[in-house]
Amino acid sequence: MDLVIILQAGVASGTVLLFATIGEIFTERAGVLNLGVEGMMLIGAMSAFAITAATGNGWLGLLVAMLAAGALALLHGVVAIHFQADQVVSGLALTFLGTGLSLVFGEGLSKAGTVSLLPQATIPLLSAIPVLGPILFTGHSVMVYVGYLLVPAAWFFINHTRPGLHLRAVGENPTAADAMGINVFTLRYTYVFVGGVLAGLAGGTISLAISPGWFSELTTSGQGWIAVGLVIFAQWDPWRAAFGAYAFGALRRLILDIQGPQLLLGLRNPFFYNPYLGFFLQMLPYAFTIAVLVIGSREAMRKRLGAPAALGLPYIRGERGA
């Protein structure tokens, strides 16, 4: 059990959560709650793997994954934005739909064999930094580096650009945004789509890079829901999302590695001698998500931080907001 290896793997598998979480941050910042992340990730993972298996081109697979998940998100967009339906139920429906579609179209894909994966890279110079170099910059899939770029980009876009200001306005006070001449509906559709695209990217990153292959629902095993929870923990901020995503990634790896050695901190390792205790280790990511939500909510109550004010509320022109 090597801490560097755990953190390195944590960064890799955390990248999946990172994409999905930042995507959901965009969607929720625009005031739309999309709980269908798990379904969109599954569609992304399935279509990325299927297209790559058929064409041998991982980039094409990734592109199709993003578009497919984005299209699915737009379905939620229509129902939530124009039909003013309950966004919780619509998001659940999207999860069912995405799971069902990916199972139906992914039938037989698990036997597709090996597929040319996305390239891996080591960054020159940066990888020579002690400790951080091996963890962050050595031998990772390119998607991990895309993740590094996405975090500051998303933060800068949301907080320091005019379109980012419009995004926040639409989520906080759509009536005022509308009066300013911002097209609330167009922007909400845009960011619902962006959220779907990033969830699709997360799914494709799983099936092409992090744990390659298609294993039906087990491909994501609830990571989409963890991402929805991380958004709340992150308080809709990309930097905190990155911290949470990588921490969860490291936790996933730790759970695998902790069962290996016979001695743990000089003591008999109970997880080695009784492999059934591994079931309790499996619970950890989910229990941690609950813990993280509790921490997040306490902090939010103390600092009076909160969700975007119009989150989950449909905007109806000419009606007074709540």
Partner: peptide
């Protein structure tokens, strides 16, 4: 996945 898919479509159509 067909039953799951049909359930998803039903729920979606229903709220829409």
């Amino acid at each position: 996945g067909v039953p799951r898919l049909i359930q998803g479509i039903i729920l979606f159509m229903l709220i829409a």
